[in-house]
Amino acid sequence: MGETRKISLSVNGKTYEEEVEVRFTLADFLRQQLGLTGTHLGCEHGVCGACTILLNGRSARSCLMLAVQADGQEITTIEGIAPSEEEMHPLQEAFRDNHGLQCGFCTPGMLTTLIEFLGDNPDPTEQEVREAISGNLCRCTGYQGIVAAALDAAQRLREAKGV
């Protein structure tokens, strides 16, 4: 094992104290060390977006961060999106209802990206949704179901807020 560091961070609301190799990417740390394999690696060079997580609420590519850089930060992964084990997030529900996923591999990155985006822009146009996920590649769906799901989720979230 090469050089390591001790880090402390919050993932999905749970605090972890871990010894991590300094060259480990955040994605590998989440997947291999914490066993949170919902965050996916599709390209490891920052293009496909499958590894997108929320870092202090902002979407970021976890293949382009070192795990040590997450020291003291708050991370949310796909495992931490749903409000409870029984209940899915409205965005997750909308993905299911609108066939926003097929193989499901790009899905974690799509969900994390869109959660941030819909926070910034609760009432987006179709084009705005398409641009928001421009950094997330999907090879199965042609994006149509994803875009529909995002717009549907936006409406559900607005309704839940009574807007």
Binding site: L36, T37, G38, T39, T77, I78, E79, I81, A82, M88, Q92, F95, R96, L101, G104, F105, T107, P108, L111
Partner: peptide
Amino acid sequence: DPALLTGQG
């Protein structure tokens, strides 16, 4: 879908 949407795939 449920497993894939919650990171349980």
